[in-house]
Design a protein around this nucleic acid. Structure first.
Lengths: 225, 225
DNA sequence: AAATCTGGTAACAATTTCTTCATTTTATAT
DNA sequence: ATATAAAATGAAGAAATTGTTACCAGATTT
């Protein structure tokens, strides 16, 4: 695994160096920035795996920075941990609401910092590593959430329809006959009439439109390339 | 990392020595006690990372000892693995309900013992790292205090309901099936009917309202994004 | 000891999803 | 263009899943 990169944004240079030292010792790549604006610029360029963000800063403060990040397609998926000067509950809550993933209060315990960072990264890796999200044409089929997105719309398909769509989409372009679909989606020793597939295809088309699944007469169905 | 300490409580001296030998070989620090009372005393003084506890013992038996431990602020967070003489299902279940984290039946396989210990320790380390305060929608789920806040209101959910809510919320958006929920919230070795999850979900909804947990028919439940 | 929680089970009602089938429409080969 | 097989459609009943309530056994409090 390549080194993971952490962007640290804080206006106190000494603290920045201290954190850098500790993170490097743990094997992380470290980027630094001294205010929110600079932080966002660096993030855009280097795409860090995580951002450690001070809440109180001149120019653009941490809260503002996160809001901006969450609005940017490229940056919105990067986890953020806040550094707050004191245990100010109100701030914490607000920060987490704005899209932070965790927070740590100063003064910082190195051990805690490291373990929190690892915990957040682990949580994020878990999320990413699964190939359960298919993006095809203008739709996203998310098997973790069981939701199909088309532009802004959300579709909640029932299980069989969803699984069928997912299976077809995961083999985009390939024609699959009804028996194969039954075996793969319904299960091997389940007995249902193969025309059942037709009905499900129809329901999917009713909901999403019929530009996704093609009929190949005499053979089966195919998800359009 | 400093050596991890394991307290072994058993009235059979030979077994005690055998376990000690094996654990030391694995690099653990080992403490010994011959009954529940002594065990608790030692635990209080030395703060072990894990306790290996025989269920059947003179003076104070293991079951009693765990209950006492779980009531003691200093000791309640220490993981406990039971040693049971035979595979007596009823005892196991009871033990796990009282607050044990795993159990091993005698006669003991050293390999199994070691791997269980490591597994439990790993699980615990992870837990410690995790954030204990979740901010989702308009509620705050505070695992340190076992309290859910919604605006100004405070809700005290019973343990299972709380843990279930917490787990779902910590995986916000992801659909989790009943089996996964049972494994993660109830524990790997506990056998309960999976519909139990439904009832707990309902109770949570009754208290907090049903805008938080969504049902995904045929699949499981999801905390709303 | 009674009253109150908590966690779990079971049963039935309510709802959604799945499957089938009869009928209409479409695609394709002749 | 027509015949024909295959697929789309509509609608109904079956099956599966969940919501809900009631109840019970232990624990915990009063």
């Amino acid at each position: 695994m390549p080194k993971q990169t952490i962007l640290v944004v804080d206006d106190e240079k000494d603290l920045l160096d201290l954190i850098e030292y500790n993170l490097k010792k743990e094997g992380f790549e470290v980027l630094k920035a001294e205010n929110g604006e600079e932080g966002i610029a660096v993030a855009k360029e280097k795409n860090p795996d995580l951002v450690l963000l001070d809440i109180m800063m001149p120019k653009m403060d941490g809260m503002q920075a996160v809001e901006d990040m969450r609005r940017d397609d490229q940056l919105k998926k990067i986890p953020v941990i806040f550094l707050t000067a004191r245990s100010d509950e109100k701030t914490e809550v607000e920060g987490l609401n704005k899209g932070g993933d965790d927070y740590i209060t100063k003064p910082i315990s190195t051990t805690k910092l490291i373990s929190r960072i690892k915990a957040v990264l682990r949580r994020f890796d878990e999320k990413e590593e699964e190939t359960n999200v298919l993006e095809v044409h203008d739709i996203t089929i998310d098997r973790d959430r069981y939701i199909v997105n088309k532009k802004e719309e959300e579709f909640h398909l029932p299980r069989k329809e969803f699984e069928l769509l997912f299976f077809l989409a995961s083999r985009k372009g390939k024609v699959l006959d009804r028996q194969t679909l039954l075996n793969k989606v319904w299960g091997d020793n389940i007995y249902v009439v193969d025309r059942t597939v037709d009905v499900h295809v129809r329901k999917i088309r009713e909901k999403l439109g019929d530009h996704y699944i093609e009929t190949v007469k005499g053979v089966g169905y195919r998800f359009k390339e």
